[in-house]
Design a protein around this nucleic acid. Sequence first.
DNA 1: TTAAGTTGATAATTATTTGTTATGGTTGGC
DNA 2: GCCAACCATAACAAATAATTATCAACTTAA
Lengths: 305, 305
Amino acid sequence: MVGLMINPLWLRTFRTLVDTGHFTKTAEKLFMTQPGVSQHITKLEDACDCALIKRDKKRFDVTEQGRLVYQYACQLDKSEEVLREQLVSDDPYAGKCRLACSGSLALMLYPKLLDLQCQHSQLILEVKAAPNQQILNEVQQGKVDIGIVTHIPNPALFDVETIGHEQLCLVLPATVNLAKVYRSDLLELGLISHPDAEHYLSLFFAQNSETCFDELLVSDIPVSGSINQIGQILEPVAKGLGFTVLPKSAIDSFHAPEKIMVFEAKTQVIETLHLVVKKGRNLPARFDTVSRKLQAHFNMSTSGS
Amino acid sequence: MVGLMINPLWLRTFRTLVDTGHFTKTAEKLFMTQPGVSQHITKLEDACDCALIKRDKKRFDVTEQGRLVYQYACQLDKSEEVLREQLVSDDPYAGKCRLACSGSLALMLYPKLLDLQCQHSQLILEVKAAPNQQILNEVQQGKVDIGIVTHIPNPALFDVETIGHEQLCLVLPATVNLAKVYRSDLLELGLISHPDAEHYLSLFFAQNSETCFDELLVSDIPVSGSINQIGQILEPVAKGLGFTVLPKSAIDSFHAPEKIMVFEAKTQVIETLHLVVKKGRNLPARFDTVSRKLQAHFNMSTSGS
DNA sequence: TTAAGTTGATAATTATTTGTTATGGTTGGC
DNA sequence: GCCAACCATAACAAATAATTATCAACTTAA
């Protein structure tokens, strides 16, 4: 490791030295004395470990390395200016937005968000599919900026806002083909599990406990398969290997709907979606843009269905 | 203007602080004391004129601005590393090469040099067409790295190397169509001038003084037009508006050769091409690459014709 | 709840760095 | 050849940075 770091002050001096071609004029321009300029150049040359100018009598030529350093100095200047601009301006259409949500939501939302990114190419969207608890953790740790979860978290740690609803459906293989589904059917088939399966299922049972699934516990159901890729969850179901629970939106996009059967529950199981942000964090303007886009989506889909 | 400049040392501290999440650990890692870390962060925040971390009891969260500055720090780190690499390595296939030569040479050489750039995309070629004297000036001032000129300049100021030859030709409108051209013809037509026309013409007269152009002086010839774009010089000649002198290579590429007539002089007028570099400047390796390419071109064209 | 042990902020002091003045050696113009 | 301009070096003063010492707030464990 080299002891010296390149000091931007030296770079500024070097830059004006190259521009003016005179040590004395550089000193004047930068409101410093001539020996100061000499010293800055010496320091910079030490830090770069090479000659930046070739001193020839009274004149000097910029060396090859000097040119590179000059270029670097210009670039640095520019970068810092850009940074300063970024620091003060809160551009609603530029910057990175990191969102975490369930796989099924990601499937729905990412295309919408990419539309937004197409309109504003400076707006970078990063969507991560994760189970509820992980979303909360990552929001808390600052690994993502906003999360969408299905139950209201600790209000001491998060700022929460409701943004939409999702209907949960029980999906079985089409081969089952029953008018009514009993607990024995589920126990026989087994669950095709996924990151949110247990949570969804417990909601389902809770709201339908007095119909066909009397007193069924999630822990009673054997797991007959598992996959954490939203697009593939229904594959084993279509093959008759088990059942699962998923939001309606995720089922609608399945490529072979004739091979699965969606069970119509007595009472619809609706899950509320909450936008969560780490408590006390005031997000920059671009998150409003994204948030508005999300809300537009959910308003449209609820009024549309 | 903001008083404080962003110090890379503060940035390094900030970066490790964000990475570790602890002031104390940062201090250990950077072989400094804990108050030093605190001070660096404070300084950096002052320089950025905004909070970079949000102190919450013992923990802290990186603010939006903090993220930007962190990103900036990483970028800076990378840049400096790249610079240091560039400073030590003398890559024969990367960097900028600025060449100045006559317009006709540029016409010939630039495509060849672009071939080189296609092979090595890091090698940036900048070719500038200029008259002889300007080339020498710019080489001297360091505005271009190498020049190609047609007469040997002051050896105290330049390092010179011969790299090739060019035949000069007198070009007249095809309508003239004479077996022999006399001084009166030239005086009547007038010269279509271009940056090197006077120089070329004086060479021509000097070597053919005892044939048809007895004692003709360049200053005697009226100028009937002028253009500094090599590709367009022959247009007025083709239209019968005047004559000019050009290197053979430039004439060969004219789109309407039937409208012009190249005068066959008694003694061929050959001009020697010299590669010039500012005296004492030792060029980096990439100039060897370019120089070799140039030499290959001239060797090929002389052996080929 | 309290006591011990961390952790980060602040103040005071010391060390280092930076910038200035003073000075001298070359160079180039007249 | 002399004078003025220019840059380098040295010595010193000013400013800055790092350290030690200390304190307050929180965490953990008894």
